[in-house]
Computed example of a mutant assay.
Amino acid sequence: MTDPSTESGKVALVTGASRGIGFAVAQALVARGERVVITGRDAASLDAAVAELGGPDVALGVAGKSHDAAHRAETVERAVAAFGRIDHLVNNVGTNPAFGSMVELDLNVARKILDINLVATLGWVQLVHAAWLREHGGAIVNVSSISALGPAPGIGMYGASKAAMVQLTQQLAYELAPNVRVNAVAPAVVRTKFAEALFAGHEEQVVKSYPLGRLGEPSDIGGAVAFLLSEQAAWITGQTLVLDGGLSLGAGLA
């Protein structure tokens, strides 16, 4: 268990954190004494999330789209102005607006997926690194997906973007060492609104593939991300932690 005293007073920026995995990450960080800056597209949802996290003393919400460079710049600027630092960055925003075969995928949709899931991730890293991490050090966690590790029927471009995120994680870990650690997590199906289409109406059948007998909960991912950001993970960088309830122990991801 992470010693809260080693993390108290630090500040994390968590993207896509008004609900689901991002919110669970923010909860885990606040619980051990960190302050958080969270982003999301809907201002009202962010306001509610900030209130649930403990209010403006510990949380700041900045509404906008992750692939909007102006939003990224505003968020980093407001984070430093409000809390004075950004020790941790969690890139959680992701999109998957298409379901079907890759060979039939609209290329404009493919570009959108890559822009939001990959290019924006690099954009966040560049800004936070320039604002704080380059001089003071810290840690980054990118939220990838088990779909990065093999064929992902129906969500191929999403999986490809998340596979690229794994490589990006390794590249950044190499480039930013020794002062900044960069890791990733690769969840299987987690019980969130984003993933609902993958289990709604047939959850019992889906769960049969999981040796641990259940889908993931946002808190499962939140706790793992919090660990990778902590001093207990001080000798871990460039790694992707698979969080899948044992799914990958089976015959395949399909």
Rank of each mutant, 00 (worst) to 15 (best):
I113H: 01
T6Y: 01
A184F: 01
V182K: 01
A148K: 13
N91L: 02
L241P: 00
Y158T: 06
I146V: 14
G238Q: 09
L53H: 04
L107N: 06
F227Q: 04
G154V: 00
L127K: 11
A17C: 09
K162A: 01
G22I: 00
F99Y: 15
L114R: 00
A120T: 01
P178N: 10
V119E: 05
A26P: 07
P178E: 12
T237G: 00
Q167S: 13
T237C: 01
S161T: 10
G246A: 09
P211G: 03
V180I: 12
D57I: 01
A130H: 14
A254D: 14
W132F: 13
S144V: 04
A130E: 15
V80P: 01
V242L: 12
A188Q: 11
G137M: 06
I221H: 07
A59H: 12
L228Q: 02
P151I: 11
G100D: 03
G84D: 05
A254K: 12
A188I: 06
G223S: 10
Q170N: 11
I146K: 10
N142R: 03
G156Y: 06
L107I: 13
R32I: 13
V207G: 04
G9E: 10
L133F: 07
L46F: 11
A73R: 15
G100M: 04
L60F: 01
R35D: 07
G216Y: 02
V30Y: 05
G16A: 05
V76H: 03
W132H: 15
E196Y: 05
L253P: 05
E135V: 10
A234L: 02
A234F: 00
L107R: 14
L168V: 08
A173S: 14
A24M: 06
R32M: 13
L172K: 05
R32F: 09
